[in-house]
Nucleic acid binder design. Structure first.
Lengths: 337, 337
DNA sequence: ATTACCAATGTAACCGGTTACTTTTTTGTG
DNA sequence: CACAAAAAAGTAACCGGTTACATTGGTAAT
């Protein structure tokens, strides 16, 4: 690996001049520029980014931290983040927190010297953790898909409660009253907000919230499957399931199918996310879209903006959109009670 | 962000001493060690990794480059890589190549100063590209899931052709003779090897290879879906489909279901990967497992080993394992011709 | 021809660490 | 108590760049 000194020797100029050529700064005579260029060329020289970063205190890198690499919208999120970052000529470095808040906290603190900004998609950190990070870090932090108590940080969030209300309305409009609910983790605000959406929707119609209809999942197919199995073995009647993401909805679809229960004829299912796989199951899953791609794009753009200007708190909020497919139908009169 | 100098002042010692305390090297009196520790503590000091890397020429980081962030085994791969890296106390930095060989090449070259080793999971780079990289780079590179022409590089690979032969045997054993094939990209060795597996399996039984039964996909559900639709609209008879990954198998399952064709009663389907979602479709997909988790673990361990000792070429090869579920059944006699 | 100015380049300090080498302090021994 | 050896701490160069400032040389104006 050749260094700037090798280029200096070959082109017979000083470090400063080479640096000027690399960065296109200052005044350099055309002939020397060419000399330097061809020296760089023939050496296959590439400036050492670490050294550049150290000298300039600019890394041209944005960090993306997710709680876990098999997270929910993971694929779309990463893909869009990578695309947006490249578009802005920034390096993206992606890390996960192994679902461990302490580790995740440490990872982020470590990232400080390596990034100009951090995007955080966390489901394990508490609000306090994030608050602390925000105070400690000298680089901006953009929190994505998370409801913060107040608009203290830069954030790109989603109207969680309203989205669930949208799901519920769709079911309620179709005559469903006994609606089972498969939630996500309850330690973070997202799960709580969504559950509120479920409960409030029922309460608005004076329908009793039956705790036995609520099962806690972990956002993956298996837990959706298991939650549904429990629901069935509990022997409680229900005509529809709201799942707090598509994966769990699809897991429960499988559980129902296995038990010989027809979807949507006997039980309707609605998910949230609009996960790309949802369209390929039979029946195609009705869902509320969580526009993770747009949100990610926004988050990256915001992060990049913040690298240059540290302005006031920015925050953006997105909302859900119902995507009707085939997993919901009007409640079957014979099954109604 | 405090630096080593801040610690020096507070603890009233020199940089060298602080450095010794940080790294546990050299002789330091217990009392000064404590002094330095508490100074670091109260400042919340964290050594700047960039500076450390520059000084030592060791980054304690391994780079993972994938061609595209929605790649095939992507989730499992990243998760395992992250876990293995953390276990060895290495930082993992993940980047994608936007499916563009030139960009990917450049990304890898850029990584040189930032990593001690690179793991490459590429489906866009040609063998020549990889060869070049290998020559240019001063850090070791481990190629995963890719058949290299000769054992020139460190690699963790998979017996692609044999795996497809395994799939084919399973179908052939079940009496299938008209077997449609949904391939992946044909510009890289994996696709070619797999297609050879398909053709050779047939040839061994003196069955004609009918090019009309071969459709090219792109390893995602949509392309599997489309390939199958084409197969159907072409009006060619087939009793089974081999797809070169589970996603495409599941896409074709959907296409068949949509067209009212029963799987496996009328058409059998077999995939490869053992993608976690395969179990949740109905029927559960029969597949050949590609042990990506084990392979990844091996690759990371190899990469880490190579950071210390640059030894002879290591290579590991894994093979497929048939996982029988419900998407394959003996050919229906009435449909046989 | 002198001066002034500006373009082109070089010098050296700096970013935040590590480390070979040197100096100072402590300890042990006769 | 003197002195050698060992332990502890400091000094300064270095990693590979950037950049403020200094220097050089050429050109136009006087």
């Amino acid at each position: 690996m050749s260094t700037i000194l090798d280029v200096c020797k070959l082109a017979n100029v000083s470090k400063a001049t080479v640096s000027r050529v690399i960065n296109g700064t200052g005044q350099v005579k055309e002939s020397t520029r060419e000399k330097v260029f061809s020296a760089m060329q023939s050496l296959g020289y590439r400036p050492n980014r670490l050294a550049q970063a150290l000298a300039t205190n600019k890394t041209h890198t944005i960090g993306l931290v997710v709680s876990d690499f098999d997270g929910i919208h993971f694929g779309l999120l990463l893909k869009q983040a990578a695309a947006s970052a490249e578009f802005a000529n920034k390096q993206l470095i992606v890390t996960d927190g192994h679902n461990d808040p302490d580790y995740e906290y440490e990872v982020i603190m470590q990232l400080e010297a390596q990034c100009d900004a951090v995007i955080l998609y966390s489901r394990t950190l508490t609000d306090d953790h994030i608050q602390h990070l925000h105070q400690q870090l000298t680089i901006p932090i953009v929190v994505i898909n998370r409801d913060l108590p107040e608009q203290l940080f830069h954030s790109v969030s989603f109207q969680q409660e309203d989205a669930v209300k949208l799901m519920m309305s769709h079911l309620l409009d179709n005559g469903h009253r006994k609606i089972a609910c498969i939630t996500g983790h309850m330690m973070n605000p997202t799960g709580v907000a969504r559950l509120n959406g479920y409960k409030h929707s029922l309460q608005q119609l004076d329908i009793n919230v039956d705790e036995k209809l609520i099962k806690h999942g972990a956002y993956d197919m298996k837990s959706g499957y298991q939650a549904c199995k429990e629901l069935l073995s509990d022997g409680i009647k229900f005509t529809a399931i709201v799942a707090f993401n598509d994966c769990m909805a699809l897991g429960s679809l499988r559980a129902l199918t296995e038990s010989g229960i027809k979807v949507p004829e006997q039980v309707s299912i609605i998910g949230i996310d609009n996960d790309p796989v949802s369209e390929f199951f039979t029946p195609r899953l009705t869902t509320v879209e969580l526009p993770i791609v747009d949100m990610t794009k926004q988050a990256v753009e915001l992060a990049i903006t913040l690298c240059e200007e540290t302005k006031a708190t920015h925050s953006y909020q997105y909302k859900g959109l119902l995507i009707e497919r085939e997993s919901v139908m009007p409640v079957n009169v014979t099954t109604r009670d």
